[in-house]
Amino acid sequence: ADTTSEQAFEQYLNGRYFLNRRGESDAMRARRYFERALRLDPSYARAWAGLAATYVIALDYGQPPDIQVQQAWSKAIEQALSLGPGIAETHVRAAQYYWWRGDWRRSEEHCKLAIGLNPSDSLVLSVSGSKALLMGHLHEALALQRRAVAVDPLSPSGRANLGVYLAAAGMLDEAEAELRHAKELSPTLPMIDSNIANVLVLQRRFDESLAIAEQMPVGALRDQILGLAHYGAGNVVAADAALADLTRRAHAPDADPSLKLRVAEVHAFRGDEEQALRGVEQALATDPSESIHAAIQARVEIMISPFLSALKDWMHLQPLLAQGD
């Protein structure tokens, strides 16, 4: 499972560093280090597990794997399991892989094995929290993520996930603190700026939210923040323009289903429940056979959205979520 090669271990540690940073270019840099470690020691199970993790992170940046990448990902999982069956992380990575593939039974099997091997591992706790979230148990997910951060307080993604869960639970001050801490640890963490800006909107600190939006690259996340913050500040013309831009992006032929949820969140914030629920329904209508990961991600984002949970007619959303099962 471990290696006796100092050089392989050094390459592995470099890979872990970039893997934990989770910036857009970090996954590829981590992958190169893990591949170097494996060239030095092909039996290094932890390096195979780390390599598998890089493919999961790439999904966060809208990089669906082609056939060649899928084969490499599958090989990494097979090798990690074969060489390190007693390592909790190998089963977590296998669970993530089969989850992406839509093989829920095998994903669940590996989750249980990981929990059985090391229930107090930070990665195991985070994955357990994600599972609880998908089942609709936000407060259980929050408790598990708190434990994960206590075990690994320097994990940027761990703190970012905790911040998102806190925001969903309405604990906005604590959410802001965790998200800002995550940004300090990894300034290029995916969606960190938009998550902070969303919390500021919910705190009615619209000028601060707009200041963050102005520094964000042009795109859907920026449009959403502008649509929310301008509306909250009373600038309806600017808010309508941003919402129109966001809606156009969301209905492009190759748009990610999650963009429809961004539109729904803006409508919910504006008090337009009918439009918000329509957006949720459209996001959940994603054909899992076309994009399993997108369908799963849409469900997760609905569960953690502090804007959608504020809908007065929230119970109407439950049948929509059930349709996503």
Rank of each mutant, 00 (worst) to 15 (best):
D2Q: 11
S5R: 05
S5H: 10
Q7R: 14
A8L: 07
Q11C: 10
Q11E: 15
Y12N: 03
G23T: 04
M28S: 09
A30Q: 03
L38R: 02
S43Q: 12
A45Q: 01
A47Q: 01
A49L: 05
Y55E: 06
V56E: 05
V56T: 04
Y61M: 11
Q68N: 08
Q71N: 08
Q79Y: 00
S82I: 06
G86I: 04
G86T: 12
T90V: 00
Q96I: 07
Y98L: 07
W99F: 14
R101T: 15
R106M: 07
L117G: 03
S126Q: 11
S128K: 12
S128G: 12
S130A: 11
S130T: 06
A132L: 07
L134W: 06
L138G: 09
A141P: 10
L142W: 04
R146D: 10
A150F: 06
D152C: 05
D152K: 13
D152A: 10
L154F: 14
P156W: 06
G158K: 00
G158C: 08
R159Y: 08
N161R: 03
L162E: 02
L162S: 03
G163M: 01
V164Y: 02
Y165P: 00
A168T: 02
L172G: 00
R180L: 13
L185V: 11
S186Q: 08
D193W: 08
N195D: 13
A197M: 03
A197Y: 05
L200Q: 00
L202V: 09
D207A: 15
E208D: 15
L210I: 02
E214W: 06
A220Q: 01
H230Q: 03
R248W: 06
A250S: 05
A255E: 15
P257M: 08
L259V: 13
A264W: 09
A264T: 02
E265Y: 06
F269N: 02
A276K: 00
G279Y: 01
E281P: 07
T286Y: 01
T286N: 05
A294E: 13
I296Y: 11
I296M: 13
R299Q: 11
V300Y: 05
M303D: 09
F307S: 02
A310Y: 13
A310S: 15
W314K: 10
H316S: 14
H316A: 15
Q318I: 11
L320I: 15
L321F: 07
A322Q: 11
G324Y: 00
D325K: 15
